[in-house]
């Protein structure tokens, strides 16, 4: 076995190469996590669709959903997706301050989304249209609630990364984490578009 072969193997590469490969693997693994997550959302959507007719006790969905609120939620989330994109660009260019500002905006939009969603769900529950009422509402609350919980988790994650950027700066590890958070955030926006298309719009239009 010659020395060139040894240095070519992945165990004896330079530290920088090891670090780069580790980040590459983490991104690959995170994509797989998202696949599992996407399957969970797909199944919840499928369950929702099968339960959509289960409104036997007369709570009509037409009165439950309000178009302006759905539009506002969607705009907030789309805007947060855009600001996250700017944050990624800034972090890739090693502009710490800009990245933090854009992340802060993303956080604000995301918080607005979660707040709107909570007020929507709370309002429905208060009007005796809670998840216990019928199968349709069970499926609706679970689907939208799961998405909202994911967005909330994303908010915690954004806050932690803002802290890391402020503390340590845009190190390769931090930029890589920001990249994975971006995958997560944009994934949640895509899921939301699916929810709007399959849950809200058929009942509002």
């Amino acid at each position: 076995m010659t020395d060139t072969l040894i240095t070519a193997d992945h165990g004896d590469e330079t530290d920088a190469e090891t670090a780069r490969r580790a980040l590459d693997e983490k991104t690959c693994g995170f994509r797989l996590c998202l696949i599992s997550d996407a399957i969970i959302f797909a199944l919840l959507l499928a369950i929702f669709i099968t339960m959509a007719r289960d409104t036997a006790d007369g709570s009509t969905e037409r009165t439950l959903f309000r178009l302006p609120r759905i539009v506002a939620e969607t705009m907030l989330l789309l805007a947060s997706s855009a600001t996250f994109g700017f944050a990624s660009v800034a972090a890739a260019a090693r502009q710490r301050r800009r990245a933090i500002i854009w992340l802060g905006l993303t956080f604000t939009f995301g918080l607005g989304f979660v707040a709107t969603e909570i007020s929507e769900l709370y309002g429905m529950a208060a009007a005796d249209a809670g998840p216990w009422r019928n199968g349709f509402l069970s499926a609706f609350f679970t689907l939208v609630g799961t998405h909202g919980a994911h967005v909330s988790l994303g908010l915690v994650w954004i806050a932690l990364l803002v802290g890391e950027l402020a503390w340590r700066g845009p190190t390769p590890a931090a930029v890589s984490r920001l990249h994975r958070l971006g995958l997560f955030w944009h994934f949640l926006v895509i899921v939301w578009i699916g929810i709007v298309a399959l849950v809200y719009l058929p009942r509002l239009l």
Partner: peptide
């Protein structure tokens, strides 16, 4: 495959304790 089991078990728990009607 495992996400489906997670969904099944979770929805069962929601039915049991939050009175949902899945």
């Amino acid at each position: 495959a495992y996400p489906a089991l997670i969904v099944a078990a979770t929805l069962l728990g929601l039915d049991r304790h939050l009175g949902m009607q899945f």
